[in-house]
């Protein structure tokens, strides 16, 4: 239990540092705006207390906001994503085979289910992030396109990082 707490705290800090000092510095293009820190919310154990997930989503986004100077933009987007997590897990996670502290692995999910789960989480996060960033419905198609293009890139990054983490935790 304590070990898990330490492990997830380390992921939390690492993902925020990675987001703020590496990914945010890529500045690839306006349409390709990936964010990988949300992996933390995605990979929390299946039976984590939902209050805690909601709060952590808000906290993580808020910390990223403080670095980006974006007010509550990431906080709102990550919070909405964290709230939707239970619904998406219900749709894509296998119902059995999960213990209380289990790491959320691709193996147990099946690759397709896991991709769908990640994909939907990312799309929710990115969509609300970009919508609130422009703060208008006027360029709606433009926001959708930006969500899909950036989301694809985020999905690749998140899958890569998740593989790295699950290999580490298997040892």
């Amino acid at each position: 239990m304590t070990l898990n707490l330490l492990k997830y705290s380390a992921y939390f800090v690492f993902l925020i540092l990675l987001e703020v000092f590496v990914i945010a510095k890529f500045n690839i293009h306006f349409y390709f705006n990936p964010h990988a820190y949300i992996l933390f919310i995605i990979m929390l154990p299946v039976f984590t207390n939902r209050h805690l997930i909601i709060f952590l989503g808000f906290l993580m986004g808020f910390i990223v906001d403080q670095f980006m100077g974006t007010g509550g933009l990431h906080a709102a987007a990550t919070l909405i994503m964290a709230y939707m997590r239970k619904i998406l897990l219900g749709a894509f996670a296998p119902r059995e085979e999960y213990g209380k502290d289990d790491f959320l692995t691709i193996k147990k999910f099946g690759l397709v289910n896991f991709l769908f789960y990640c994909g939907f989480m990312i799309v929710i996060h990115h969509f609300f992030l970009f919508l609130l960033e422009l703060f208008t419905f006027r360029n709606f198609l433009f926001t959708l396109l930006r969500t899909l293009l950036s989301g694809t890139l985020s999905l690749l990054m998140i899958m890569g990082l998740h593989l790295l983490f699950s290999r580490k935790s298997a040892k």
Partner: peptide, 10 residues
């Protein structure tokens, strides 16, 4: 919490 974040965005 959503209210709090929207307030900060505003």
């Amino acid at each position: 919490l959503l209210g709090v974040s929207l307030f900060f965005i505003y």
